[in-house]
């Protein structure tokens, strides 16, 4: 069973290079929609451990990674396949929509 991994500016690259399909959840402690979306992301991480790795990046502590992807709104989800950003979701969404996007991208 896979779970959400906390990534940072130092190890982010190794995580996205180390798995063909990655969802990155950019969040901050003050972002309440981010907090409320987390259980849905946990379910996705747990139900597709082979298919996808789910990372979370705290934007307050990891400005390099957030700037690299021009993240200026939370929550933002990036869908990265083979090291390349394929699509993103900006704003709060339900897990069904995340799963749907994952299926379209992967």
């Amino acid at each position: 069973m896979s779970e959400i991994i906390s990534a940072n500016d130092g190890n982010f690259e190794s995580f996205i290079q180390g798995h063909p399909m990655v969802i990155v959840d950019f969040w901050a402690p003050t972002c309440m929609p981010c907090r409320l979306m987390e259980p849905g992301l946990e379910k996705i991480a747990a139900s597709h451990p082979e298919k996808v790795r789910v990372l979370k990046v705290n934007v307050n502590e990891n400005p390099k990674t957030s700037s690299r992807f021009f993240v200026r709104t939370l929550p933002t989800l990036l869908f990265i396949k083979d090291g390349q950003v394929r699509t993103q979701i900006v704003g709060a969404v339900n897990p069904v929509q995340i799963e749907k996007t994952l299926n379209e991208v992967s």
């Binding site: 200026r72 709104t73 939370l74």
Partner: peptide, 10 residues
């Protein structure tokens, strides 16, 4: 943006 609470730290 539509959420200051979410995005203010930027």
């Amino acid at each position: 943006s539509v959420c200051a609470t979410c995005d203010a730290p930027f």
